[in-house]
């Protein structure tokens, strides 16, 4: 009896440990599972729900466009459009809730600036901007303007993101 109750305790303890590990992967800023932002952005672009997104920005212009300092993010991947549309994919990795908040505000400012620009330049594109996906998941902040948010959401879910 004593032996079986010890076995039961051990089993329950192990079960609790497993449950705690599962909760740890729900997407907090200190998540141990690091998503590769470049792979994620590339997979989003590859869905085909963009008509105008170009190659990944590598000239360092992206942070400047978002008004972000280099030390605000630890990694990022941004795809701009050709300017024909406001389509864009931007994924940022942050290290703290404060940084997440700052980057989220930068994404909202980007959206607002683009709306102002396209209202007169290409008014038919403003709805796409209004539906832009701006969010956080774990240590990632994203700003995505596409033709189909549902398709993009599926990719995020495949990566275990919200």
């Amino acid at each position: 009896m004593k032996y079986s109750s010890r076995l039961l305790s051990l089993t329950l303890s192990l079960l609790l440990v497993f449950l705690l590990c599962a909760c740890g992967n729900s997407g907090t800023a200190d998540s141990g599972e690091a998503v590769d932002v470049h792979e994620l952005a590339a997979d989003i672009v590859a869905t085909g729900v963009f008509t105008d997104v170009q190659t990944e920005n590598t000239n360092g212009q992206a942070l400047s466009v978002y008004g972000l300092e280099e030390d605000t993010v630890s990694d990022y991947s941004v795809y701009f459009s050709s300017m024909a549309t406001p389509e864009e994919v931007a994924i940022f990795r942050v290290s703290s809730p404060e940084q997440a908040s700052a980057v989220t505000e930068a994404c909202k400012a980007r959206q607002s600036s683009q709306v102002q620009s396209y209202e007169s330049y290409a008014p038919d594109q403003v709805e796409k901007l209004s539906n832009a996906m701006i969010g956080t998941s774990g240590d990632l902040v994203y700003y995505i303007v596409s033709k189909n948010n549902d398709t993009v959401k599926k990719v995020l879910q495949d990566y275990g993101l919200q």
Binding site: Q54, N57, N59, G60, S117
Partner: peptide
């Protein structure tokens, strides 16, 4: 205009020169 905006975002001079551009 927007064509220069595209040049800015897609080439290495984007971060080197100054840009006074507006798509419109």
């Amino acid at each position: 205009d927007s064509l220069l905006n595209g040049l800015k975002l897609n080439t290495e001079i984007g971060t080197v020169a100054d840009w006074l551009v507006n798509d419109d």
